[in-house]
Design a protein around this nucleic acid. Sequence first.
DNA 1: AAATAAACGCAATAACGTTGCAATGATTTT
DNA 2: AAAATCATTGCAACGTTATTGCGTTTATTT
Lengths: 141, 141
Amino acid sequence: MFIKLHRNAEELIRLSGGRATVGRIRILSILLAEQQAITHREIEQRLPQTLQLDRVTLYRALEWLAGKNLIHKVTSDDRVWRYHANRELHSHQQHAHFKCTRCAQVICLSDLPIERSWPLPIGYRFQEIELTVKGLCADCS
Amino acid sequence: MFIKLHRNAEELIRLSGGRATVGRIRILSILLAEQQAITHREIEQRLPQTLQLDRVTLYRALEWLAGKNLIHKVTSDDRVWRYHANRELHSHQQHAHFKCTRCAQVICLSDLPIERSWPLPIGYRFQEIELTVKGLCADCS
DNA sequence: AAATAAACGCAATAACGTTGCAATGATTTT
DNA sequence: AAAATCATTGCAACGTTATTGCGTTTATTT
């Protein structure tokens, strides 16, 4: 199972025209294996002892992956970025996020059941919507 | 005009059961005079030379005002809090925010034309929605 | 005017993220 | 297969925003 993810990650990276380094592959594997959006720190903790990356390297790898649209960053009110692999469903489509106000878990919700644009004042131009629903997750409620 | 805001601010603070200090009054006046949500730094810059507050004091005053529901904090993807006075319209109602991707200006949009709750996975409990529309403001587009 | 407790200012600290630069290593070229 | 090349990495230092502790000041009450 994990090997499959690993190969999958490597291929995705190569197809994006970047170097398939151990770190990038591992990071993308971790994100592909994860249901929820996780922080820089959480990714660090999931790295095996045998492959501890420098904080900066991790930041840069994440930035690169996001630039290649293999993952996306999620804003949060705790001023910490969370990262999530782009499933096909999400890659070309906007979607909402859910954040548990107790355990801070973040998951992606399915696509937006609202209009893709939004009524704005005159002269304003719409680009995108960022929507986070807050509440309690199944474990915390 | 400004004096009116000043008195208004002072009254709001007293009604909330707090000490009407020069700093708090001034800060709330500034926020009441502002159309958009502004940052800690921007508030600092709008303070008169004759009343420069310590950064920490400003943070604490803002926190206090938010706790009393006189203002509210707005999350943003640049990891900077923005603050906005609670008009009656907004105080008891959720609303969306707009952020210009070029000049970083943030304004409050009118109340949400979407359902107040949101379809969540089984076991999850809804609390609130946080919605930011991004695009270009009238000046930047 | 004195008492009191809330607010303030200063200094230090925390957390997250970024930048510059020399060293390493994945790919390509020979 | 070895050398060349340039993207990527690791380290150290730095930047920004925000928070905490504590002694001092000040708005309000007595």
